[in-house]
Amino acid sequence: MNKATRPATRKKRRNGLRRTLTGLIVPLALLIAWQIASGAGLISAQLFPAPSSILKDFYDLLASGEYIGHLKISVYRALLGFAIGGSAGLLIGLAVGLSRRTEEALDPTLQMLRTVPLLAITPLFILWFGFGELSKVLLIAVGAFFPLYVNTFLGVRSVDLKLFDVARILEFSRAKQIRRLVLPAALPNVLLGLRLSLGMAWLCLVVAELMGADRGIGYLIQDARSFMQTGVVFVGVFTFAIVGKLADSFVRLLESKLLKWQDNYRG
C-alpha cells in the first residue's frame, strides 16, 4: 500500500467505527434505563429481570456448557435449512427468470404456495416428518426458499436489454451470457434475497423449535418459560436478536464488497 491511500483507508475504518457506535446508542440507552428502573424497583423483577441478572443467567448457562450446545444445534438447523431452501430458491428463480415457458409452468403454483402462512403447514410437517430434525430443517428450507426465489427472478428480469445486444455482438454463448451478464446484473437483487432469506430462516427456526424440540435456543426459551425463569427467556431472545443481526451484517458486508461498482444514492 502506498502513502497516498493510507489516510483514506484509515478514514474509512474510523467511519465504520463511528457507524457501529452510532448504532449502539439506542440499545445501550435502553439497557441502562432498564437497569436503573429495575434497581429503583419500578418494574417487576419477575417479569423484567434487570440486565445484570440476565447477564448472570447467561454466564451460568455459558459456564455449564448448556448454552453453547443449544446455540450450535440452532445455528446448524438454520444453516442447513437455509442452504437447502436458499439454493433451491436461487436455482429455480434463475430458471424461471431465464425462460418464459418455465415461468408459465412454475410461477403460478409457487406464488400460490408463497401466500400460505408457514404456521398453517407446520402441523402437516409434523404429521409427515415427525418431531425430529427433518421436519424442522424442511420448515426452515420452505421459509428460506421464497425470498431468494422472488428476488432472483426479479433480478434476472431487470437485466438491461441493451446489454444483451452487446453480448450478441461479442458472441457470448448461452452459458457465458448467464455467467457474464445475467448473474452479475441480477446480483444486487440476489443479495437482497439472500438477506431476507437468512432472516426468514432464523425466524422459521424459532417456529420449528417452539413447536417441539429437545435442544436449541427455541427449546431453551420454551423450557425456561415453564419454570418461570424469565432471565433465561431473555437470554434466548437476545441470542436470536444478536445472531440475526450478525448474519444480516455479514450479507451487508458481502454487498459492499461485491456491489462496489453500483452507482446509487447512499444517503
Binding site: D165, V166, A185, L187, Q262
Partner: peptide, 10 residues
Amino acid sequence: FQEHRLFPWL
C-alpha cells in the same frame, strides 16, 4: 452505440 453500454460491474 450512442451510450457506452459497458458492463457496470467490470
